[in-house]
Structures are given as C-alpha cells and as structure tokens.
C-alpha cells in the first residue's frame, strides 16, 4: 500500500512540537532567571531575608527588600489549607468508596468535579463578601490568614477528594476480596489494605493540592488583607508571594521589578521540587 507522502513528516512535526513545549518551560525558567539577575546582583540574596522591611521602590541602595513576611504568608496559608483539606478530602473519598450507596457516591463525585471548575476569582469574591464579614464579627478585621486558609481549603478539597477517590477505585478487586475472605472489618480493610494500596495516588493528590495552594493568587489576594507582616495570629492580615506580585508588578520599575521576578523564580522552584518529588515517589509507589 502506498503511503500518503505527508504522513512520514508527521513524526518530525510532532517531535518538533514536543521539543517546542518542553523548550517553553526551559525558556520560562531562563527568562525568570535573566530578569531576576539585576536584583540578585545589586541587592544580593541575603538581604531578601535580613533587610528591615519591604520598600523596594527606593532603589537597590536605599530600598529595603525583606521577603520574609511574604514567604511566611505563603507557607502558613498553604500549610494550613493542606493540613485541613487532606484529612477531609481523604475521609470523604473513603466514604464515597466504602460506605456510601453507589448513587450517592457518584452524585458526590459529579458535584465535586463541577465545583472544581469554578474560577478562583469567584471563590475570592465569595470569600470577600460572605466569609470575611463572618470572621470580622468574631475577630476583626476579617481579612486575615484564617480567611485565606479557609478559602484555599475549599478550593483544593476537590483536588484531594477526586484524586484520592480515583486511586481508591483503582485498587485491584482481588485485594478487597482477600480482605473480606480474612474476615476483616471494614475499618481494618481500609487501614490495612485500601490505604496502603492507594498510597501513591493519595500522595500525588496532596502534592498537586499543595502546588495549587502555593500558586493561588486571586482568592488569597481578595481575602487576606495584603499587609506586609509576619502573622502573629490567624486573625492577622498577611500578604503572600503571589499577591505581592499581583499588587506591585503593574508599576514596579528596575530593581523593584527584578526583585518581583526573584519571587517568581522562588515559586517556580517550589513547583519543580513538588513535581520531582511526585515523579520519584510515584515511581516507588508503583514498584512497591
């Protein structure tokens, strides 16, 4: 059979496109690094952690470049949200898989799939109009670390729940039948068989959720008050690295802009570490 002539060049075309999209990632990193260099050279990495405050618009010599409050903001809000969303997400996945009647489990999955698609700016708007006034009644000012943690929890819960559920669903039926044959209770089956078998999938779920929490901008920007300070309590307003970029990039010049690219590079580094950890541990999980 004669081959259509164009088809053979297809391999080269798709190889070219694959190289292009891989290359885009490398170019992004290179560009961030290039833009970050002036700040790293003129200010130095150390001053990002030791300067007295964040006043980057005054230039490299007179300005101050302390990123610690923003780093603390990002870490506390992401950690808080992941710590709450992980048990809730896994428990709701377990319920759907092992306890709920089939129809309820399916309905829950459909609902969560849909809600996972709601844009973050809408969550942020809801947080601003509904959630922060509730917190203000309890403990002013309302726009706070707590509001950020709660809104991020709501946003990453679907990720944890859906991915955990699908990895619980992909456990070979023989494992579960074996557990039944041994007369294990449902809880013993879950603890001894299901959770260990689904471990690597659940780990992936938590990693992806963490990445989302660290990178989220709009929702935290709208509910956390954006004051540059290391939070003393969960009711304090704080600013994250992402919110800092969103607020200042539009007018930042010279070394100030370069300093913002340094924070972009930091975010990128966190993502690379998370993806690499997932790739490695996921492989080990499959081998085990």
């Amino acid at each position: 059979m004669s081959q259509p002539r164009g088809d053979a060049s297809l391999i080269w075309a798709v190889r070219g496109l694959a190289v292009a999209s891989g290359g885009i990632v490398l170019l992004i990193v290179a560009f961030l690094a290039l833009e970050a260099i002036p700040a790293l050279r003129e200010v130095g990495l150390r001053r990002f952690f030791t300067d007295a405050s964040w006043h980057p618009a005054d230039g490299a010599d007179r300005g101050a470049f302390n990123l610690v409050p923003m780093v603390a903001g990002t870490l506390t809000v992401a950690t808080g949200a992941v710590l709450i969303a992980t048990p809730l997400g896994i428990a709701s996945a377990l319920f759907c898989r092992f306890y709920a009647p089939g129809a309820l489990g399916r309905a829950y999955r459909r609902l969560v799939e849909l809600l996972a698609g709601i844009p973050s700016v809408v969550y942020g708007f809801w947080g601003l109009v509904v959630l922060t006034p509730l917190i203000r009644q309890w403990q002013p000012p309302g726009q706070s670390l707590l509001a950020g943690i709660l809104i991020l929890t709501v946003m990453i819960l679907p990720t944890v729940a859906l991915l955990s559920e699908s990895s619980l669903r992909s456990i070979p039926a023989a494992y579960l039948r074996g557990a039944t044959a041994l007369g294990l209770s449902r809880w013993a089956t879950i603890r001894g068989v299901a959770l260990p078998a689904a471990r690597s999938g659940i780990f992936t779920a938590v990693i992806l959720a963490t990445g989302r929490a660290v990178g989220e901008t709009m929702a935290v920007l709208m509910v956390m008050g954006n004051i540059v300070q290391v939070p003393g309590s969960v009711f304090d307003p704080v600013r994250t690295l992402t919110a800092n970029i969103a607020l200042e990039m539009g007018y930042a010049m010279e070394v100030h802009r370069s300093a913002l690219f340094v924070t972009g590079l930091m975010l990128m580094a966190i993502v690379v570490v998370l993806v690499a950890a997932n790739a490695r541990l996921g492989r080990e999980g499959r081998r085990a």
């Binding site: 694959a18 961030l32 990178g215």
Partner: peptide, 28 residues
Amino acid sequence: ILGRSTRFLAEVMAGLPSIVAGIVAYGV
C-alpha cells in the same frame, strides 16, 4: 529520553502558578 523529559516538563508546566505565566508574558 526526549519523550520522558517532555512529560516531566509538561507536568512542571501544568503546575506553573498562573501569576508566573502572567509575569513572563508581561516581561516578554
């Protein structure tokens, strides 16, 4: 090796914080 590194890079790119995509397009 090209396929596997492309997959790794695609996963990194999928995790790219959207604001970082914004500052790259802004800068470029």
